[in-house]
Amino acid sequence: MKELQRRIDRMIIHLGGYWRPLSGLARLLEEAGEVGGALYADDRVALREELMDVFVISTCLANQYAITLTNQTTDRDETKEERSYYRLVREAGEVGRILNAYEGDKKLKASATPGSLQRHIEAVQQAVMELADMNGFDLFAEIASLIEDKSSRDFGRFDHTPDPITEDSVRTYRSYVEGRYWGGVKAKPFEEVSRYREREGHLARFLKIAEVEGLDGFVIRQPEPPFQIDRSIETDLQLAAPFAVEIERHGTDTFWIVRKQG
């Protein structure tokens, strides 16, 4: 599954980058509805295609939150398509509820459960695998050809959307350090930290969800010449406890890593 996530990530980068999460969510719900349409019409060809689309889009959402998915196997006790489809719709709705709190106007509950996004995305994929198995589809065997087809057919179709999982800062840092990290936009030489904070939208999202989602840190690559600090790094970045900045050097690069302390 980890290698499949990497291949889907490479495909998405090739096509122009990830959708904004709420746009990805809209596509997930659309495809879940199309699975229902294929089941209703008893169209097995369409069903295979829609199940693969649900699997790929849900994997993209997992990638955007640096989630490492586990392999989903079918539940042999599940024998009815309707029950598995209801599970797919229910779990897609749970993904929607969480992402609306992460990315939309809905506030996070104080009782938000750590790791819940991964659990519900994996439940979506388990329902997909059950439906595929009931209909004799070897979904994993067909995903590779889907990736090849989309990489050639859809190249240049989508506009590039900045995303904290695709920024050069985090991609470079993760070549040195493994973990669940997001990254900031490219900093300008001599840029004031407070000014960088004003135009850096990813950091606010990170601070909102890092604790509940279990992200390991937020990566900012030091420009050359370096940042200009007014008061302190934490103050200029508007960080509140329990977050602080750790400075790391890897190769020729200097990184500021915003991490939860304690």
Rank of each mutant, 00 (worst) to 15 (best):
T113E: 14
A144N: 14
I147E: 11
I143Y: 08
D77K: 07
W182I: 03
Y85V: 02
H120V: 13
D154C: 09
A112N: 01
D154P: 01
M129D: 03
N63A: 07
E82K: 06
G115D: 04
S151D: 11
K106S: 05
M129T: 11
S116W: 10
E148F: 07
A127C: 01
R97L: 10
D77N: 11
D133E: 12
D159M: 13
R119C: 00
M134D: 03
A141N: 14
P164M: 11
R97A: 12
A132G: 15
K80R: 08
I143W: 05
A66Y: 00
Y65A: 01
N135H: 15
S169V: 04
S152L: 14
T73E: 09
T70R: 14
Y86S: 12
K150C: 03
L88W: 00
S116K: 07
N71E: 13
P164A: 09
V170N: 08
D138M: 11
R97C: 00
D149F: 15
K109V: 00
R76P: 00
M129K: 10
S175M: 12
L88A: 02
R119K: 13
S169T: 13
A132L: 03
R153T: 14
T172S: 15
E142T: 12
S145M: 13
L131D: 00
E94Q: 10
E122S: 01
N135M: 06
T73P: 00
R174M: 15
E122Y: 02
D159Q: 14
T113A: 10
A127E: 02
I98M: 10
R180G: 07
V177F: 02
E103S: 03
L131W: 05
Y176F: 15
G184A: 15
A141T: 12
I67C: 00
D154F: 14
A144T: 15
E91G: 00
E81C: 01
V177Q: 14
L69V: 03
K150T: 06
S175L: 10
Y85D: 02
I165E: 09
E178R: 12
D168H: 09
D168T: 08
E81A: 11
A112Q: 01
E81N: 05
Y181M: 06
Q72T: 08
I147R: 11
G93W: 05
R83A: 10
D77A: 09
N135G: 06
Y85H: 07
P164T: 12
